[in-house]
């Protein structure tokens, strides 16, 4: 019987295949809500809306840490010396080549805004430490310069720059 149905498709086969296929489609569709619920819920997404940060209290050479979407954001008011140093470095010598200009806003080059999460395994680097006058990650020894660019491993990438813009000269909006 099995052999004959395999040779000549019959209405029986069609019925079984249709039922099986419908069951499979229904089963897969039913999985979706169970997976989708793991994603951030509406209140979490709403809480991740852009934030505004006032820069006036941050003096030159200082930096502050703010939180956006649960991530620490370093906002550094860099000194002239720091800016000159990071802009003098040959880009080709970097682990993750990027110019300081591409990581800051024109006309606001003294301000560095980076997500303070080490690109190695997610620890928070300490500001104003390490050999490059930038950030030092205490977990595994990664070092970043004052532009947040990785200068010494094991981190593979620069500290990411979050989406932000200057609302005025002394206020930025992150997000």
């Amino acid at each position: 019987m099995t052999a004959s149905t395999a040779d000549h498709p019959t209405r029986r086969d069609f019925l079984f295949v249709a039922t099986g296929a419908t069951a499979a489609v229904g089963g897969v569709a039913a999985l979706w809500p169970f997976i989708s619920q793991m994603n951030p819920d509406a209140s979490t997404i709403a809480a991740g809306a852009p934030i505004e940060v006032d820069l006036t209290p941050v003096a030159e050479g200082q930096d502050i840490k703010v939180f956006w979407r649960g991530k620490p954001i370093y906002i550094s008011h860099r000194t002239k010396k720091q800016v000159e140093e990071v802009r003098a470095v040959p880009v080709s010598s970097l682990i993750d080549p990027a110019t300081d200009q591409s990581r800051t806003k024109d006309g606001h080059e003294q301000w560095l805004v980076v997500i303070g999460i080490c690109t190695h395994l997610g620890c928070i680097p300490i500001a104003h430490e390490g050999n490059y006058d930038g950030f030092f990650c205490p977990c595994h020894g990664s070092q970043y310069d004052a532009s947040g660019r990785v200068r010494q491993g094991p981190a593979p990438l620069n500290l990411p720059v979050p989406p932000y813009q200057f609302v005025s000269d002394t206020k930025i909006q992150i997000g």
Partner: peptide, 26 residues
């Protein structure tokens, strides 16, 4: 998604229904 605390349990159930994806269905 539920919070077993006397002050938060009722609210957490409402948040499941309102905010979690397909929370109302589950």
């Amino acid at each position: 998604h539920y919070t077993p605390h006397a002050d938060l349990a009722f609210k957490s159930v409402e948040l499941i229904v309102r905010d979690v994806n397909y929370g109302w269905l589950l």
